[in-house]
Write a protein that binds this DNA or RNA. Structure first.
Lengths: 217, 217
DNA sequence: GGACTCATGTAAATGCCCTTAACATGAGGC
DNA sequence: GCCTCATGTTAAGGGCATTTACATGAGTCC
């Protein structure tokens, strides 16, 4: 394959050569700048240096591009969380703490992905790829929840799925309300990471887990 | 004052007579139908039966209307939460349970308000009215958190503000991820109200609160 | 009661965006 | 070396946001 696109804004021939990827990068850049609402298909085309009609060769419409961005976001997200969780090593509670920090860090470092994933208002049921990517990301949380509840005595053990949903809700709530430094956010008495860590600690204690219980190997 | 607008879509003269209110109602209707992104200023004007330029006599632009809707939403929200909390009567834990249910119920019954408040991406710092209305709503949660932590022994008592932020994050997380029946939502093993109630129970237990402690007057 | 004023509407115009249709280019297969 | 088809372009229709100049009439002031 001969390469036409020579880096962003580089000279090229009639064909771009790598437009689909360029559009995704453009979308990320523009969403990060102006939010998922303030991003237009025409903008992305301009950013990639093609005519406004060119993107339609790769995406049915603007929402399809957004859905693809969201799907890639879930993939990245799942990878990030998987790495942070690291199968619960060296011990489950320490890994769990890393997981929470990684969640918030992703929301802050990749606001464009996070917006596309959770705030763009894409109907998940219409795109199987997207739904599956989302489920893969969630399954990391569910795996962590399973290892967590496994630390508890078998009787009175709460459903791992419920615990996973609680974890997700807390992390998403904090990320969504306070996670991005930019606009529209409230001022906090502590950084979001600490807020989430504290919430996790209280929640784990409520489950019957504490540092003593969990740190034992 | 003689009244021109005779109910929705009723005949009227050159002047509408109540356009501002009509625009807010139109916005709520349209946001509920198509989300905050799929609502246009021109739509709202059409819905109210006026020309596309008329709304500019009442709102600087589309975002200003959205901000007004969000502000009214926070007012309603604060009233709803205040009523549900009822100053912690008859006992703090029962009132707290009502508070959580009221939170989710608001998100479900008034998705248009909730979207405008939390998902429309309005920079809160630009509109003092909006920020203050949001703070009034949050102060209900903070008041509840204060009564909650007051049940705990004075030493080791967590900061009420932090607890309030935790409560808000859990409720918002669940409302945002699972709260609206419509589109883009995941399927749950239990209704959102139960999910939140369970999260609250675990969290309260982690704080050192339980039914026994709280029900005592 | 009548004239005036100003808040509130309308019409028209600009510029941008979304989307489609008809046409152009050239990379890779034969 | 030709041909095909994926990938781009240009042009056009329709819609929305926003502004400007103009129209209406409700309430006010004499």
């Amino acid at each position: 394959m001969s390469w036409h696109g020579r880096g962003p804004h580089g000279p090229r021939g009639y064909h771009h050569g790598n437009l689909k990827e360029a559009l995704v990068r453009a979308a990320l850049e523009l969403i990060a700048q102006k939010g998922p609402a303030g991003f237009t298909f025409a903008d992305a085309a301009r950013f990639a240096g093609v005519s406004p009609a060119a993107p339609y060769r790769h995406y049915r419409d603007r929402d399809a591009l957004l859905a693809d961005v969201a799907k890639r976001g879930f993939d990245e997200f799942a990878a990030t969380l998987t790495k942070a969780w690291n199968d619960g090593r060296p011990d489950v509670l320490a890994a769990f703490d890393r997981l929470g920090k990684a969640y918030l860090d992703f929301a802050k470092q990749e606001p464009a992905y996070y917006s596309a994933m959770f705030e763009a208002g894409i109907p998940a049921d219409t795109d199987a790829q997207l739904r599956e990517a989302g489920e893969r990301a969630f399954s990391v949380l569910r795996g962590a929840a399973e290892k967590l509840v496994a630390l508890l005595p078998a009787q009175g053990r709460p459903p791992a799925l419920m615990v996973a949903l609680h974890i997700w809700s807390m992390a998403h709530g904090i990320a969504s309300l306070f996670g991005r430094g930019d606009a529209a956010r409230r001022t906090l008495p502590m950084p979001p990471e600490e807020l989430l860590e504290a919430a996790f600690l209280v929640y784990l204690r409520g489950l019957g887990l504490s540092e003593d219980v969990g740190a034992g190997r």
